Simulated scan of single mutants.
Amino acid sequence: MSSFDILGSLGAPSAAPEKCSRKGCRAAASYQILWNNPKIHTPERRKVWLACAEHQEWLAEYLRQRGMLKEVVPFDAPHVTEGNQS
């Protein structure tokens, strides 16, 4: 393999599935959990956590208790919403 082969592969998109945002979880994401912190974000801004089926409710409840949960939607393609895993 030449140096050019290595450099060419650096910008290649990853085929690996997006992972759950729950600490320590390596499962593929099935849901997008859309949220914002009203103390620091404008009302229309949406941050995104990704969740596997096992952790979707735990992550949503964490945000719900803090008044930050906006919506939970299926994750079926690369998302165009802002802030993956923020």
Results as ranks from 00 to 15, higher is better:
C20A: 07
S30G: 10
E54M: 07
D5Y: 06
E82C: 03
W58S: 10
A60M: 13
K39P: 00
L10C: 06
H41R: 00
R66F: 01
Q32E: 11
C52I: 05
Y31R: 03
L7A: 06
G8F: 04
A77T: 14
I33K: 00
V72I: 08
G83Y: 02
E71A: 12
L34M: 09
C20K: 02
V80K: 10
P38M: 02
K39A: 15
S21P: 10
K23V: 15
I6W: 07
A53R: 07
P43N: 08
A16E: 13
E54C: 09
V72R: 10
R45T: 13
H55R: 05
V48D: 02
A16S: 13
P74S: 06
I40P: 01
A12D: 14
A28H: 00
A53H: 12
L50F: 15
S86I: 07
G67H: 01
A53W: 03
V80F: 13
Y62R: 14
S30H: 13
A77I: 03
L59S: 00
A27S: 14
A27L: 11
H79Q: 11
R22T: 02
A15G: 10
R46D: 12
P43R: 01
E44T: 13
M1R: 06
E82Y: 14
W58V: 15
L7F: 12
S3H: 06
G11P: 02
D76F: 07
A29C: 04
P17F: 06
L10E: 06
R26K: 13
E54K: 12
P38F: 01
T81N: 05
K47A: 04
K19C: 10
W49F: 14
A15V: 09
T42V: 12
N37V: 12
E44F: 11
E82P: 00
C20T: 01
L50D: 02
L69I: 03
D5S: 12
N37Q: 08
K23Q: 15
A60E: 05
L59I: 09
A16T: 03
R45K: 15
M1S: 06
E44S: 11
P17S: 09
R26S: 09
S21M: 06
E61H: 08
E71D: 12
P17G: 12
R46V: 01
E61P: 00
H79W: 09
H55W: 04
R46Q: 14
V80G: 15
L7M: 11
P78R: 07
L10G: 05
G24D: 07
S14E: 10
I40E: 13
S2V: 00
E18P: 02
E57M: 07
P74A: 05
G24N: 10
L50T: 01
S3D: 07
L69D: 05
E82D: 08
L59G: 04
W35Y: 15
F4N: 13
S21H: 00
I33F: 02
G67L: 00
V73M: 12
E57A: 12
P13Q: 08
V73N: 11
I6H: 06
P74V: 07
W58M: 09
E61G: 08
L69G: 08
R45M: 07
K39M: 04
D76M: 15
